[in-house]
Design a protein around this nucleic acid. Structure first.
Length: 893
RNA sequence: GGGCGGGUAGCUCAGCUGGGAGAGCAUCGGCCUUACAAGCCGAGGGUCACAGGUUCGAGCCCUGUUCCGCCCACCA
């Protein structure tokens, strides 16, 4: 077992085991970070700041893959900015999730065969708090397992004292500003949850239903008007029939009223342009108490509203003979009765959208009710402006349209809920005079009549009301805190697009209204996590990947890196175990690269501080590549292109550092040249340190573990400065040179592989290169070429006869030969060359055409033309080489 | 009905301001080479959905067609 360095054991280094044992490592470092207070926010003067508030998960929730993605991305940013020297804070917390949590506790009660009404409001709410205490820590601990570096001392809960105070303050202010009002309106009622729902909380699902054509007889004679409806049971609440004023079919109505079947009530016929002439029969039954449009028509024509259902979705006294029937039973009976009376003209199948409760999937009932609303239009305007003028940037930008569209068409927000778990609305009604008092503190007496008989509103607020205040309520508002001054507006909000309206839009409105500026500089909307086939993960489909099990099996870093690598903007993340397993290989690769380095590194070794220009080629090259990678990772993270950051780091580590650099420096590390060895170790250490820091935000655990195994005093990688771009490390010449050597080495390996020379067999190779500069370079690095190709003799010639019994490979204008023991298959060799020749000729042809095109020469920028010319020359030289080779082979035949 | 995203290698997807089509996985061949077989070396594989257009030049820009996915919506 490895141990953490501390005062007593300062000389004891972490030793890397053969395989990466993540379970113990993860626990060890997370505890260490917390003990060392590395997550704690800093508010130093003179530093820039970077802040994030967490999208608060439901307090009783369990970590799912969506959380894993969301919080991994946030942790990456906050770790990156923290290392980069900014004042940072990541404010964590949980949401009380009104309806969802109440439902859970109600289900628990149901198992005990009691309802919330049996125990009463006070006891019920106590019971929910108790449940919150029991299970509330769960998701927080799971976030910790994910490695989240939140400032846990600032953990908040939407119903804690401070946030409740903010809620009251906001409600009171909005009420007195006239932006909160109470009124009768059609809302969406969930007959199971027994509460009103906001429009957003209703999910419309295409459902196969029926369209019933019903005859409404005129009061006298045999004539009738036919109306079409999908919900015949609501006819019991009809108070009119509406037709379009310009509809010629209804210009000569025999009378302006009909008899409502089954009730014998007489209802008027009204003319309203809302009616779609093409739909159904062109006549619309008007049920003001159970349909939003009908309600609006009723207002225009001063029609009464008649509620025919109660809160359980059961027909009430006003439904006459149908009272006591469930709404769906009532529908069947109404249809049967109409048919018996010969008033059902026809029934046709009809697919339409039916609203379901987003919490329990019960079909919602539009219902007339007295509720509290926020008048959001004025708030929405400013929220639109903030995005329009760039105060808040939404990424990916394509979401801006959706945001605008919703904001422009926004309707008043119903914020009262008839449940018990939540912020009770701070409004009191005077029992004596009916005065409504709204106040941040509980009032004693009525301000109108001084009566002390005040009754508090029993409704609670929509959960999203308190979430809307999250960016400033968690930083201490309404107090004027240093936190607000330092961290508001927050830097970035990272959340899933599916709560853009529920949450983001409302935070924008509230933040601007109460803080004077938008709550975020950047909003990054990430996609949904789906399964490998693109299906939404759901328990019923059984395709849910449990991030906790994934972490158990593959390690947290593997999960995090997979999430990061797949988090491309605007695309869903398709996750499967295979993919996570794949990226676990990457974690392992880093681990093994570090183990290799540690085989050679010595206690006194330090990362190089030498001028890069003075170093041998391989070192200049790796530092140059590293520098470009640093630039790319920084740029990508700043642009929320997490996948690009992951891929840049992956590419560098695996295919540059491991595949080439580590192989290249082996001879030096295993050799006797002490100076070369020392330089090599110092560069190796420098590259390794930087790459670990670069990767730390994405894969914090394995990088910290390796960090402590490196020579020198190490506190924690998470407080090391994030690598900066160093211009002096850029070395295009070295990169060009290595590209050449890699081309030659690959050529020799290709010949070996194609001709079946055993990998361990030594060979003799020859290189013909006419260019003297490059010939000198090749000569200089001949030993590296030999080492990486297992070549015993490398003959470098300026020109010459192709030796007999060799296979060849053309790399640009360089020809490579490998001697073969047996006789080569000349025909096969020639065939290979001809295929290559065809390809090159195609390319040369294209480029020649381009260069011969006067318009191209006239219009294309000079650098592009030069590049094309260069390419042309290169291909031409290669072509010449191939021709030479073919001629020689032809002679041999 | 309105809007958004997508169609690129067998699969999953990158491809940011237009300038020689990429990655991972999978496939094929060869390797236990002293960090790693969870590995190494090499190879094959694409009419960038279709049709037009703009441009010297289009996977990328414009128009249309088509197929998938999602979101919003007050045609009962």
């Amino acid at each position: 077992m490895t141990r953490i360095q501390n005062q007593e054991t300062a000389d004891e280094k972490t030793v890397l085991t053969k395989g990466y044992e993540f379970t113990a490592v993860e626990r060890k470092w997370y505890d260490f970070w917390q003990d060392a207070k590395h997550f704690r926010a800093t508010m130093d003067d003179g530093k820039g700041s970077f802040s994030i508030v967490i999208p608060p998960p439901n307090v009783t929730g369990v970590l799912h893959v969506g959380h894993a993605l969301n919080n991994t991305l946030q942790d990456i940013l906050i770790r990156f900015k923290r290392m980069d020297g900014l004042n940072t804070v990541w404010v964590p917390g949980t949401d009380h999730a009104g309806i969802a949590t109440q439902n859970v506790v109600e289900r628990q009660l149901a198992q005990e065969k009691i309802s919330r009404h049996d125990i009463g409001r006070r006891k019920f709410v106590e019971r929910v708090w108790q449940w919150k205490e029991e299970s509330g820590g769960q998701i927080i601990n799971q976030l910790k397992r994910l490695g989240c570096s939140c400032d846990w001392e600032r953990e908040r809960f939407t119903m804690d004292e401070g946030l409740s105070r903010a809620v009251r303050e906001v409600f009171t202010r909005l009420y007195h500003e006239g932006l909160i009002y109470r009124g009768d309106y059609i809302i969406n009622w969930c007959p199971r949850c027994h509460t009103a729902l906001a429009d957003l909380e209703v999910e419309h699902e295409a459902t196969d239903g029926k369209l019933y054509h019903i005859r409404y007889p005129y009061t006298s004679g045999d004539g009738y008007l036919v109306v079409a409806t999908t919900r015949p049971e609501t006819m019991l609440g009809d108070t009119a029939v509406a037709v379009h004023p310009a509809d010629e079919r209804f210009t000569d109505l025999p009378e302006k009223a009909v008899r409502l079947p089954l009730t014998e009530r007489v209802i008027p016929i009204v003319f309203d342009t809302h009616v779609e002439r093409e739909f159904g029969t062109g006549a619309l039954k008007v049920t003001p108490a159970h349909d939003l449009n009908d309600f609006e028509i009723s207002r225009r024509h001063d029609l009464p509203a008649l509620k025919v259902m109660d809160d359980n979705g059961v027909m009430n006294q006003d439904a006459g003979a149908y009272a006591g029937l469930d709404r769906f039973a009532c529908r069947r009976k109404v249809v049967a009765d109409l048919e018996a009376l010969g008033l059902l003209e026809k029934v046709e199948p009809y697919q339409h959208g039916v609203g379901h409760c987003y919490r329990c999937q019960t079909i919602v009932e539009p219902s007339l009710s007295k509720q509290w609303f926020v008048s959001v239009k004025p708030l929405a305007e400013k929220a639109i402006t903030a995005v329009k003028n760039g105060e808040t940037r939404i990424h990916p930008k394509s979401w801006e349209n959706t945001y605008f569209d919703w904001m422009y068409n926004i309707r008043d927000w119903c914020i009262s809920r008839q449940i018990w778990w939540g912020h009770q609305i701070p409004a009191w009604t005077c029992d004596d005079c009916g005065e409504i008092l709204v106040s941040t503190t509980d009032p004693d007496t009525c301000t109108a009549c001084t009566s002390r008989a005040l009754t508090q509103e029993t409704d609670v607020l929509d959960t999203w009301f308190s979430s809307a205040l999250w960016p400033f309520s968690t930083l201490g508002w309404p107090e004027n805190t240093k936190e607000l001054a330092t961290f508001y507006p927050t830097s970035a909000l990272i959340t899933s697009f599916d709560i853009l309206f529920f949450w983001v839009a409302r935070m924008m409105m509230m933040g601007i209204h109460f803080m004077g500026c938008a709550p975020f500089k950047d909003v990054y909307l990430h996609a949904l996590v789906r399964d490998a086939d693109g299906q939404k993960m759901s328990k019923s489909k059984g395709n849910v990947l449990d991030p906790l099990l994934v972490m158990d099996k593959y390690g947290t870093d593997a999960l995090r890196f997979t999430m990061t690598a797949f988090a491309a903007q605007g695309r869903d993340v398709r996750l499967s175990e295979d993919r996570i397993e794949g990226y676990r290989h990457f974690i392992n690769k880093i681990w093994n690269a570090a183990r290799f380095a540690l085989l050679h590194l010595e206690d006194g070794d330090r990362a190089t501080t030498a001028a890069p220009g003075s170093l041998p080629l391989q070192h200049r090259w790796i530092l140059s590549r590293l520098n470009l990678t640093v630039a790319e990772v920084r740029r990508s993270l700043d642009d929320f292109r997490f996948n690009d950051a992951a891929h840049a780091a992956y590419q560098f580590v695996w295919h540059e550092l491991c595949d080439w650099y580590l192989e290249w420096i082996k001879p030096a590390l295993y050799g006797d040249d002490q100076e070369a060895k020392g330089v090599t170790r110092s560069v190796l250490l420098a590259a390794l340190e930087d790459v670990l820091k670069l990767l730390h935000p994405m894969i914090p655990f394995v990088t910290e573990e390796i960090w402590h195994a490196l020579p020198g005093d190490r506190t924690s990688i998470m407080i090391e400065p994030f690598p900066r771009v160093l211009d002096e490390r850029n070395d295009p010449a070295a990169e060009e040179c290595v590209t050449l050597l890699v081309g030659i080495i690959t050529g020799i390996r290709n010949i070996r592989s194609e001709t079946g020379i055993h990998p361990s067999a030594g060979i003799e190779a020859g290189i013909i290169c006419h260019d003297p500069d490059r010939r000198a370079l090749i000569a200089e690095h001949a030993s590296a070429i030999r080492d990486m190709t297992r070549t015993e003799t490398l003959n470098l010639v300026s020109d010459g006869e192709r030796p007999k019994g060799t296979a060849s490979y053309i790399y640009n204008d360089i020809e490579i030969f490998v001697a073969l023991e047996g006789v080569i298959d000349i025909a096969q060799e020639m065939e290979k060359m001809r295929r290559e020749k065809e390809k090159i000729e195609l390319q040369v042809g294209k480029i020649s055409n381009k260069l011969a095109n006067e318009k191209f020469l006239a219009n294309a920028p000079a650098d592009i033309i030069a590049k094309e010319q260069e390419k042309h020359d290169l291909f031409a030289a290669k072509l010449a080489k191939i021709d030479e080779g073919l001629a020689r082979l032809a002679e041999l035949r």
